[in-house]
Write a protein that binds this DNA or RNA. Sequence first.
DNA 1: TTCCAACTGTACACCGCGTACAGGTTATCG
DNA 2: CGATAACCTGTACGCGGTGTACAGTTGGAA
Lengths: 220, 220
Amino acid sequence: MGQITEFPFAPANKCRGRQRSVEAEASVLKATLYLLERKSLREITTEAIAQRAGVSKTTIYKWWPNKNLVALDAYLSSMTARVVMPDTGSAFKDFTLQLRSVTSFYKSPLGRLFGQFIAEGQSDPAILSLFRERFLYARRDAARVMWQRGVMRGEIRKEIDSEIVLDLIYGPMIFRLLTGHGSLAEDDSEAMVAAVFAGIGLPGYKEAKVPTPRRRQKKS
Amino acid sequence: MGQITEFPFAPANKCRGRQRSVEAEASVLKATLYLLERKSLREITTEAIAQRAGVSKTTIYKWWPNKNLVALDAYLSSMTARVVMPDTGSAFKDFTLQLRSVTSFYKSPLGRLFGQFIAEGQSDPAILSLFRERFLYARRDAARVMWQRGVMRGEIRKEIDSEIVLDLIYGPMIFRLLTGHGSLAEDDSEAMVAAVFAGIGLPGYKEAKVPTPRRRQKKS
DNA sequence: TTCCAACTGTACACCGCGTACAGGTTATCG
DNA sequence: CGATAACCTGTACGCGGTGTACAGTTGGAA
């Protein structure tokens, strides 16, 4: 609750006149989730959401600018703690479990939405930006905690930027997810994290030095 | 040339009647590229292509199933050797140069198409599949050669599956490209490849062992 | 009780897709 | 040379989804 009111596009209620219907909002989000579990974002129409929610299409357009943002809202409202953030005492195990969990979720119907938001974002900067702010960064902040623990325990090189570490761990699987060119099996999660930790270079071969990275785009 | 005839959806010419107009095809591809350099794939309409190409819309639909596949065709026809495949004698340098080159191309207007095809592919399996077959796999085959050289020279661990290696190197940057959450600067390419080679784990810390991966989905 | 804003339902303008149809054009075959 | 077949062109159109307009109804706060 209180989700929508944080949105920049939500009109303010001036406390006079009829109150906003809470059931209508909840019903819209619920109907949207129902449909998203069965069809892709592109296939779903605003009309279908309105109909299933038992709400007028006009009402939807009153509170959300378009279908995609209804979907993003529904996605966020349902995503609270659906993916594990483990704390096993080993960064390697933490990341492996996490990547496995994320990957298996992303294979699910609702998880596919992840890719669909990115897809819509390619032609709609607004939704991509909102997706980053309200979803991706939250995820990364949580994952950065796992990284931090690993650094403090002396398991992870502290000279490598955390942004790079996170992208190295999650990027490859997300790449596979989006293009479908590679396996998303559980073993692969482990193999990838293992490779990221150990490096692909042979220990003897020492040309590949890790340069100290310049700090960039610090998030608050 | 001869590009279109390889397509499964291209009708066969029975050698009777008027011949297919080569200028029309070339004109369509050229017009499409022109438009794609200025607008996103989603913004471009079939009519606009037809108009700019000086060709009837019907003709386009005769040879291509839809706009996206016209664009893919145009993209492929223009992409031959636009990105470097270096051979410096060092796998680390090769991959760094390559990633840098790829990234800078993907930042360009035409390069953005990469993400837009993946985006369309999220709701259209056919185009995603064609994108993999005709673009991605060709790229990866070429990159695998760099990997192979590295393995033979003793620079890269041979026990790590090449699919994983390639995804580790390219996945993170593509992830950044698609979501826009991270920097795409040249320094980052080098830092990423360096991290992939050296690993993020501290040398002393030895829990992260690389398991021998099961072979999967061998491509011909 | 008044008043305002949220709701409902229908209608509609707009746009892009893909097809249909009626013509005109250029090649090969007999 | 004429017939035939497949290409091309142009216009028109049905379809479906978007987002808005408008008229009317409902409910809560002053």
